[in-house]
């Protein structure tokens, strides 16, 4: 059986036997609060890893600090629980040292967008082939409830008793602004979509960022309810599928169209609107214009875009590193350190 397949120019070791969820379940007690959205993320990861095809020793999870960052302890893979904000930097080193690994980062909105903001944007800019799960609960959970860089303006927390006075980051906007090649958004409660998106992220060559609207039941319960609640979700969620028109609403009668330079929600049949007017999703498009507009959509005027928003193909940093080394090895006269030591200007004393 051929157990090797190739992603770009890199050969990856494939698992010889089919894997199952049990191959990744850890023996450690999961210590997240009962009802925390993180449990669903863990389930999805355990469900998707066996499907990716790598052998189980080739998975690596890296995290920073925060509730999300306990993740490596809860999955049976190689894991590195780092320090606050630095997961992206650690993961970059892991991937460059061994490009044959499937590297996953578990991080939160505070970890990646506040203290680790610099590493986050540079990871994305370089397009290192790793997958980043951004647990966005709009709060600092582990330190017991302070506002984060994604808390909506006016959020009342322990450190903002009168409400926050900062403009929050929209992660998608930041990802695409950092030259991101892959951005998806999912909700913790939709495990089917989450698993599908994780699979696509694994297949994408380059930095894949999945923003997970995760509910912190303790410190920011229902923070995403405007999007996720039963009553509102049909009208406030747009489930994107590549090649399909952007339809939403209970009967899929609403849609998104491009009106001049902005997106607009319309209803089919009203004002002469037909399905032809509705934008068709092209996640692979290199130009990020529409992807950026999609990531910025927010209620009440527009639904929140979910699924894979952008998945563009560009060269990855780790591939280019290997390519340069390959080229140097083929073309340099210096093949070993003895060659180096004796290169250039030397002289002999008799």
């Amino acid at each position: 059986m051929n157990n090797q397949y190739t992603i770009t120019n890199l050969t990856v070791e494939k698992s010889e036997t089919p894997l199952s969820k049990d191959d990744f379940v850890s023996d450690q007690m999961v210590r997240w609060c009962p009802g925390c959205g993180s449990h669903a993320i863990l389930n999805s990861v355990e469900a998707v890893f066996p499907k990716i095809g790598y052998k189980k020793e080739n998975f690596m999870i890296v995290s920073g600090i925060g509730c999300s960052s306990r993740f490596p302890y809860y999955v049976n893979t190689y894991g590195f629980h780092g320090i606050h904000g630095r997961a992206s930097a650690i993961a970059t080193g892991v991937k460059l040292a061994n490009p044959g690994l499937s590297v996953w980062i578990a991080t939160g909105d505070g970890d990646s967008m506040a203290i680790g903001g610099n590493h986050f944007i540079h990871l994305i800019r370089r397009n290192v082939d790793v997958n980043l799960l951004l647990f966005n609960n709009q709060i600092y959970g582990l330190t017991k409830g302070q506002y984060s860089p994604t808390s909506p303006m006016g959020t009342v927390t322990k450190t903002s008793p009168q409400g926050t006075i900062e403009h929050p980051f929209n992660p998608g906007e930041l990802v695409i602004g950092s030259q991101g090649t892959f951005f998806a958004r999912v909700i913790d409660s939709n495990q089917k979509m989450m698993t599908e998106v994780m699979f696509e992220s694994a297949r994408h060559d380059g930095t894949s960022v999945i923003e997970i609207l995760q509910n912190c039941i303790i410190f920011a319960d229902k923070t995403h309810a405007m999007v996720t609640s039963k009553e509102l979700r049909d009208d406030r969620q747009l489930h994107l599928e590549d090649g399909k028109p952007m339809l939403f609403g209970k009967d899929k009668t609403k849609g998104i169209r491009l009106n001049g330079t902005h997106l607009e929600a319309v209803t089919i049949g009203v004002d002469g609107i037909t399905e032809k007017d509705i934008l068709v999703h092209d996640q692979y498009r290199a130009d990020p214009g529409i992807h950026l507009m999609l990531s910025k959509m927010s209620p009440p005027e527009l639904p929140v875009a979910l699924g894979v928003i952008r998945s563009a193909r560009f060269s990855t940093y780790d591939d280019l590193v290997e390519e340069q080394i390959h080229y140097a090895k083929a073309n340099s006269k210096i093949k070993c350190v003895d060659d180096l030591l004796n290169s250039g200007d030397t002289f002999t004393i008799e």
């Binding site: 780092g82 930097a89 970059t92 080193g93 892991v94 460059l96 590193v321 140097a328 210096i334 070993c336």
Partner: peptide, 24 residues
């Protein structure tokens, strides 16, 4: 000296320099 297999990563800051090394 990439011909000797050396991977040199110019990081975005000092912290990323050492953290990437620790990952490696």
């Amino acid at each position: 000296h990439k011909s000797l297999g050396a991977k040199v990563f110019q990081a975005e800051d000092e912290i990323a320099g050492i953290c990437s090394s620790l990952g490696a």
